[in-house]
Amino acid sequence: MYSEQVMNHFSSPRNVGIIENADGIGEVGNPVCGDMMTFYIKVEDEKIADVKYKTFGCVAAIAVSSKVSEMTKGKSLEEAKTLTKQAVAESLDGLPKEKMHCSNLGAQALNAAIKNYEDRKSGKPVSTIEAINKETTTVDAECCECQTSNPIEAKFCMNCGEGLGEKKDG
């Protein structure tokens, strides 16, 4: 089901933990949805000097957190901001379709931490939980014929048999 890369990062996740007095903290997701990530960054010369995280979630969520920390440690903030869910998924040698939202969550959590740092620096009011997780991730494939919602992996509607086609990733 998962690539070796994913299993490797899951069984020995890198950079786990909390940074006391972090310069930026980003939190996305919530336990009710099944995934939640909290990223902490230490910034020096507009670079990510250190990054740590805590993650509640599945194998993919943990592996993604680990990979995101590895990919962005030492990078400039501008560079880190351009990290996409595709880049994360690719460097993990792919993720199952229904787990792509985990990849998205990782990039979002890091971006939230960067935004939190920038807001603090510019003196903007800072909310503890960034509300950038608004972008809802669709996990159902709705049939265009009968509007029945099907599991995302279904290729044909389980009600009327209509082809469900390729879904774009959330």
Partner: peptide, 11 residues
């Protein structure tokens, strides 16, 4: 029975 383990991502 976790949501993440189901293909439909539902609890």
């Amino acid at each position: 029975g976790s949501a993440c383990a189901s293909k439909a991502l539902k609890t």
